[in-house]
Design a protein around this nucleic acid. Structure first.
Lengths: 251, 251
DNA sequence: ACAATCAACTTGTCTATACATCTAAAAAAA
DNA sequence: TTTTTTTAGATGTATAGACAAGTTGATTGT
């Protein structure tokens, strides 16, 4: 348990949309913002319930509810007698993590690197419009990125992006940030679906992934929405010998 | 919204382990039990907060907390002015559905059938104890079931079951019910983890699944808990050409 | 007969208070 | 110095009371 002094509370309710929310919800929102913005860092101690009570003039039970719910949602960790701390990391959910192949590789203590093979802006073809679920005259971006773990190919990422929602997609530096990171900031994705299959790779894929034609591959097709608008459709292909998909449910 | 009259509350705290739990936790446990046992059925209206207050002599805030948390966990649905109802179904998440291969096949309008290849009761080997996370001297069941979709093999299900939690496992009729269905009724599973891989089948698996040795297979290893106790560990193997894993997240 | 109003009941939120339990550090005792 | 005790502060739980807001059905008025 780290032991940094608690941050001050003067600006707790700043920069918040003034929607007509209950107090406990505003508190949750404000604290989430402090965490996601990095102002309150991992393992840092946050103000105690009574400090918030004194600073904001609300009831302790209200503060307690906000902190309790944020704890249940995995943003905070509380220890009786000690205080409330920013939790290690928002473990997204189930298979969501695989979006971020870079982070995953880094978490294993390995080196991640990627090569941008294709990046083009175009009108959607009929097939793309179908899988992307947009009107045909909408602009799209199409990209193919090859990801490496310790200089060994681990994923081919073919992606089609809705240009309306992510207009700066083609201006990204794909060596520095993954497409996932940009898309998350441009149009936070709230919903999605996967289709996971075991298939054999074709000739091009074999060469790109540096594998034999007989090696089974794990293919993940994924479509992701932000609200009602589809953001992106991706096809991720992994060598079976170098990749496992992990997920958990419940809790 | 269905409109059944609220059930009575005389026996709310019966059949409950008398662990030293907070009142709100006991309430949650009792209500969960009513639901999982089928006594309170889907869409049925459950007692209002004030009814519980009158019947059990606890504070409304305490009841409110229990009901609010059960709602957040997806067991209940609440409507202001109307009441509290048993939720549709613990829509577990993402890949949970694949547990029920029988239902999945039926949903496609196809015929499901299964063959019980192995069923034995034993002490857990060291390896099984490790993967199952139980003490070595615990009894286990081990089963292998082959599932068919329209008389074509679609899944090999190898399973190890904690005999303490599911004592009647070996007395089930595996032709009538899947192991999943029995386990769900014996020890409702609340948590689990998956490991998905693309692999090549061995000789025995090729024969059982009626596939070539070169055909990639989708392997799912899954462990499932009920509370803190592990219930079962399973390995599911599917021919890549006959099976896709579908899941969605968000909402 | 129809419409508007009201009453009763429900969940949703907020407050003030109280006591329990846990922790760490200060104070007291050895 | 070392050990023990106390104390202050933190979270955890429980209660009683109040008001807001949504829904339904009964009542009232036209």
């Amino acid at each position: 348990m780290s032991d940094v002094t608690a941050p001050n509370l003067a600006n707790l309710f700043d920069d918040l949309p003034d929607a007509p929310l209950p107090i406990y919800a505003k508190l949750k929102q404000a604290i989430s913002l402090k965490i996601s913005s990095g102002e309150w860092q991992t393992n840092q101690r946050i103000p105690s319930e009574s400090e918030v009570v004194k600073a904001l003039g609300v009831s302790r039970m209200t503060v307690n509810r906000a902190l309790r719910e944020l704890t249940a949602e995995g943003f905070l960790v509380r220890h009786q007698g000690l205080g409330t701390f920013v939790a290690e990391k928002k473990a997204h959910s189930a298979l969501f993590d695989v979006h971020n192949i870079a982070e995953e590789v880094a978490a294993r203590g390995h080196k991640h690197r990627s090569e941008l093979l294709v990046l083009e802006s175009a009108k959607a073809t009929m097939e793309e419009a179908m899988t992307l679920g947009v009107r045909t005259n909408h602009g799209i971006f199409r990209s193919v990125v090859l990801h490496f773990e310790n200089d060994l190919p681990i994923q081919i990422e073919e992606r089609v992006v809705n240009a309306t929602l992510a207009p700066e997609y083609d201006k990204q530096d794909f060596a520095k940030h993954t497409s996932y990171e940009y898309l998350m900031s441009a149009a936070p994705m709230t919903e999605g679906e996967h289709l996971v299959e075991a298939i054999l790779p074709n000739a091009v894929e074999c060469e790109r992934l540096q594998i034999q034609a007989s090696e089974p591959c794990l293919q993940i097709k994924r479509r992701t929405w932000a609200g009602d608008d589809i953001v992106t459709a991706a096809r991720l292909l992994h060598p079976g010998s170098r990749f496992q998909l992990f997920g958990h449910f419940g809790r």
